[in-house]
Amino acid sequence: MRKKPSMFSKDYRRQLKLRRIKYMIIFLIIIMVIGITGLVFTNREGIVAIKNFFIKESTEDNNHKSEENKNKTEENSEEESVVEEKSTKTYSDVVLKSGKKVTINYEEKDQVKKINTIDSDSQVKCSIAPSQEMILILDKEAQDMYILNSNEKLINITNEQYVSTTNEVFNKENVLKYNPSYKWVESAQFIDNTHIAYSSSLPWINNSDDKYLWIYNMESNTHRGFYNVKGKTFEVGQITDKGLTISLDNKEIVVDKDGKIVE
């Protein structure tokens, strides 16, 4: 350890001054070290606190944005669902030769239009095919039959003329003009997706008391009469797995697409 300067030395004052300066410098250095150490420690805690604050704020902001995006996605999905639902439910109007109007309501499923309901005049009877892709329209007053498919194509399938076994031709228009009460076609219904059953007074022109079973084949576009199935009252009924129910003079039978009585 260094000795204190002697007061008897001629340099006593200068040495004492230098000693004080030296101590002051050491003291300042110690203060600076302590201050820097404290500042570093404080800054580390501050940096960590600030970092945690921004991480928390960022997390909360991301969560908030994610929740907003989720809500927007759900809202958009609901809106798209509503738009899609509205866009798939459609209807169309068709006008028959007689001027009567039929409104068809259908819904598109798997890019296929399915007919749901039909609105029509009381004199127009409509039936939906088992496939729900077409309807049978019977204009009872005009005695015309039509097929309307889901593409809105209307086809008149009325048998406009009958050729007898002697090759005599009877036109529907002339027969009804001569006898307005004649039943050229009266009751009609699908048997399946390609066959339609209907009642008619044909093949007899003068004797129109009985009605006979006729079947229209959509694939061959032909009309065929089954004269063993007849009755003074003739009403088609419901489609079953075996065929079509028909009420003949209050007696119910089932016929298949070939006109055979199966039940």
Rank of each mutant, 00 (worst) to 15 (best):
I147Y: 03
N151D: 13
E168G: 00
Y146C: 05
A142L: 02
Y178M: 10
L16K: 03
D144R: 14
N116A: 12
E107L: 06
D61Q: 03
D61R: 00
F54S: 03
I34Y: 09
V40I: 15
S92D: 14
S81Q: 02
N43C: 11
F170H: 14
Y23K: 10
T88G: 04
H64E: 05
T222C: 00
L176E: 05
K72A: 06
D258K: 08
D258A: 01
A49E: 08
I215T: 09
K56H: 09
N179L: 07
N171V: 10
N69E: 12
S66Q: 06
K260C: 11
I26T: 13
T240N: 09
P180A: 00
T103M: 12
K22I: 02
L18H: 10
S127F: 14
N151E: 13
P203D: 12
V254R: 13
K211T: 06
Q132R: 10
E84W: 04
K100I: 07
D256M: 14
K257D: 01
L248I: 09
V82K: 13
N52H: 10
G99L: 12
K51S: 08
L16N: 06
S87M: 13
Q161A: 10
T117F: 12
E108C: 00
E80N: 15
F8P: 01
W214L: 13
D209E: 14
K257E: 01
T59K: 00
Y23S: 01
M24Y: 15
N217E: 02
L244M: 03
H64K: 08
K177A: 15
V169G: 03
N149G: 10
K97E: 15
N151L: 09
D61S: 07
I246K: 03
K242W: 02
I261C: 02
F226R: 01
R224H: 14
N71M: 05
D209H: 12
K65I: 01
V185I: 15
Y198V: 05
L244H: 06
S220N: 11
T240C: 02
F53V: 04
G46Q: 10
E107S: 09
G35P: 07
I21S: 03
I25Y: 11
K260H: 08
D249V: 09
D192R: 09
E75Q: 08
E141F: 13
K100T: 12
H195G: 12
I55S: 08
G243Q: 04
E79H: 02
N171M: 06
D258W: 07
T42F: 14
K183V: 00
I31G: 06
V169N: 02
I253A: 04
E68R: 00
I215A: 04
R224I: 06
K153N: 15
R19F: 00
